[in-house]
Design a protein around this nucleic acid. Sequence first.
DNA 1: TAAAATGAGAACAAAAAGAGAACATAATAA
DNA 2: TTATTATGTTCTCTTTTTGTTCTCATTTTA
Lengths: 208, 208
Amino acid sequence: MTELTRRQRQIFEFLRDNYERFAYPPTLDELCESLGMASRGSLHKHISALIDAGLIEPFSGSKQTGIRLTAQAQRDYAACEHALPYVGKIAAGKPIEALADVHYLPVPALLKSDKPCYVLQVKGDSMKEAGIFDGDWVVIEQRDYARNGEIVVALIDNHEATLKYIEQSPGKVLLIPANSAMTTQIYAPEQVQIQGILVGQMRSYRVH
Amino acid sequence: MTELTRRQRQIFEFLRDNYERFAYPPTLDELCESLGMASRGSLHKHISALIDAGLIEPFSGSKQTGIRLTAQAQRDYAACEHALPYVGKIAAGKPIEALADVHYLPVPALLKSDKPCYVLQVKGDSMKEAGIFDGDWVVIEQRDYARNGEIVVALIDNHEATLKYIEQSPGKVLLIPANSAMTTQIYAPEQVQIQGILVGQMRSYRVH
DNA sequence: TAAAATGAGAACAAAAAGAGAACATAATAA
DNA sequence: TTATTATGTTCTCTTTTTGTTCTCATTTTA
């Protein structure tokens, strides 16, 4: 397999990191514009190299399908060896404060699951009796369901996100803080959307 | 193999320690700038020597690949920079239970200091109110002194090790647990040997 | 003082990157 | 259907980047 040039890698990473920005797999022209390039032909040369490298799905002869990552490339993205995307901060009662530029944090395999994960930074003390403090980083496995007793990232009424213990019974969902100064919240199942469950945690004691 | 000159060693160490700062393997020009040099040709001479020494990957004839460390150099790098030795378990009242085969745990830069560090696994609940639970991994900076209020690994009377808050005053040393069910221990300074201070912490929520 | 090491800078060739045109086919609209 | 636009492909040409090889001056070291 031919090795990638710097520009080719750069284009692949752009695609990998910004794939959801495109409503549909982008065409050469669309990608050109996103990359600030003027020539479709030039881009095509790079895309061809990425196809040869097995990172982008080959254009299936007759169809005009856009540029799509291969399963392998997507897997690499999710697993990303050691590094996980650090996507933002989570504070009880607020939506996840997303970052403009997602960057990657190397995370020991120990702290991840074998499913796609991401990293959030905790704001607030709602889980302090579970040993999760303000400023800690948490590793979250991306998942839309949970078992009772797990700590979940839940989106409530579609606009506030929180990290809590979950207890689900028919007709209601309890989100339980680990802080005796705070109270358990009770919701209807349709109000609560699970965005992931806690699988790892990190804390730094250095003053940054 | 030719021996390295001082400057060559210096350049190699810079590269080794700052490799992740570069999004891509740096070119001669980029390295020049990082090093504050003005001449690409001069740097090239040093890089050539490092290639001969087997520390930097030879430029593959036709391709313009940047400056990359060899596998050997990366291994050396990983051993002391990204990965930390996991040396054993620490339980209050017992010496550190050393492991027969030390293995290495990759640790995010975030959780370490710039001094030598190692990793221990915590046994017991003596620090649970500080959010440090049984089974957690802690990153310890190797150091034989501490500031008051820091969490330290201390060896008492040369045979039991423990993780506690420290308060030092002339003539006595307090080792303070973060557990209201346990009591502060008071020692003479010569009884207490500091083995390191807490700089990072990790927890896995998976069932292993 | 002589040798070694370091650095600046110029000149060069190959590689990489980009622009733009031309073309064939696919998708879509009239 | 036919005309038109969109999309992928293949060229040529130019510019920029990058590794390489020099010469020469300056600094450091023995």
